[in-house]
Design a protein around this nucleic acid. Structure first.
Lengths: 220, 220
DNA sequence: TCATACTTGTGAAAAGTTTAACGAGCGACG
DNA sequence: CGTCGCTCGTTAAACTTTTCACAAGTATGA
């Protein structure tokens, strides 16, 4: 097996997903810390900023290689670059946005996706009124275009921001078009083949689970 | 110890949070199943609809009591009512929405929160231009009002939909006003005292962690 | 009434995740 | 040049969560 640069270990195929999901948090904390002018950072500082224990951080990073120096900590910009590279954020990913209602518009206009190497490359909506709307240099396309347009543009990521009763249909169209991953804002569990990754964003569920504790407080 | 209705077990104080976070998913699946006209449902059917294994579902429900009948499954409307009760969703919770930009507006206009027993009772924004805007029967208030207004209205839940660099300040104001739980859409880890519950909504992180797998696919 | 089909609730095992603890290496400073 | 303080990477232990598998209970129909 070839040795990867920077002493990066040849990738264990079984890195837990939960570790992968924490990497963006580390990246974010590193960005903040670098923004404050620090050049190096210890796992304890990273822990304070990210809310994840320092032992956890060291263990997580160890899956990918050895990035620190005993007594010194991590070179912050280098660690950030490492993590971005591991996550594939050192390139640009095109995204299909499905649904251009309130949520879809908020997503399209949200600056936070852009510096994060995502570029919306197609927008779809089922509402005739919205089709044709210009958004930057894009035009909102009809829902029926999803599969063909996604395939033609070679888009690998889809965002679903449609009402719950349309979500599965849209997901099927995206999958038909060949996306490999879907971010789902609709409050439904989507069916997808094993080779398509789905992540759910569920603010309502998060609220509903918090009220459990509030109700408990009231009862006790 | 008093016996609770419906054979509900006196609540174990140590029900894992992960179980609580799954209850809204069951509620959602039950709603869909009831909407299709079914009166009873088995843990296998619930599993198919929610994407969670039937064993997990049975185990989760067992924390709260015995709701099913061997050979029959669960009475769907009754189980839904149970779960809603456990989550405290059989009452209405008032919410403070902080930030009335694109995201804040999308949240305010999103129908999905309303039937879920949440009612936005105050909206705040730091932008002078937006203060005074009428939203339903509310008026957007200045950021400086957060603590006093939240306290005056006895609001227990806050939603943070402001840019990341303002999020901690807003969180502090909400906590000052006495909220017990915060839903945070900003991409920062918020500091809060132990008795304040914080849940993070992190679509960008979710996207960033998915690209890890896409990048892997490309490399292999 | 009995046999059959079905499905819960749960004990025990397995799998996964986090924390604790510390040897070893690095840099700073006297 | 040696000592000291710091912090990583890692092993082992503790803890949490999920899955398995089945006894026990319920309904149905012959």
């Amino acid at each position: 097996m070839a040795r990867a640069p920077y002493g990066m270990r040849t990738r264990d195929p079984e890195i837990p997903d939960i570790v992968i999901r924490r990497l963006p948090m580390y990246a974010r904390s590193l960005q903040a810390i670098i923004g404050q002018g620090a050049a190096s950072v210890s796992s304890d500082e990273l822990a304070a900023s990210s809310g994840i224990s320092s032992a956890q951080i060291r263990r997580d990073l160890a899956y990918f290689g050895r990035f620190g120096t005993q007594g010194r900590g991590y070179n912050a910009p280098r660690l950030l670059a490492e993590i971005n590279h591991i996550l594939g954020l050192d390139r640009t990913w095109t995204v299909a946005l499905c649904g251009y209602g309130n949520l879809g518009r908020a997503i399209a206009q949200y600056g936070g996706f852009v510096p994060s190497s995502f570029q919306i490359a197609a927008i779809f909506d089922r509402n005739e009124q919205r089709v044709g709307t210009e958004v930057g240099d894009l035009v909102v396309e009809p829902q029926a275009n999803i599969a063909t347009s996604v395939r033609a543009k070679n888009i690998r990521l889809g965002i679903i921001a449609v009402p719950f009763d349309a979500a599965q249909t849209i997901a099927d169209a995206l999958i038909d078009g060949g996306v490999a991953a879907i971010l789902n804002y609709a409050p439904v569990h989507l069916r997808a083949p094993e080779n398509v990754l789905v992540r759910e964003i569920d603010p309502v569920g998060a609220m509903q689970s918090m009220t459990y504790y509030l109700a408990q407080m009231d009862d006790d």
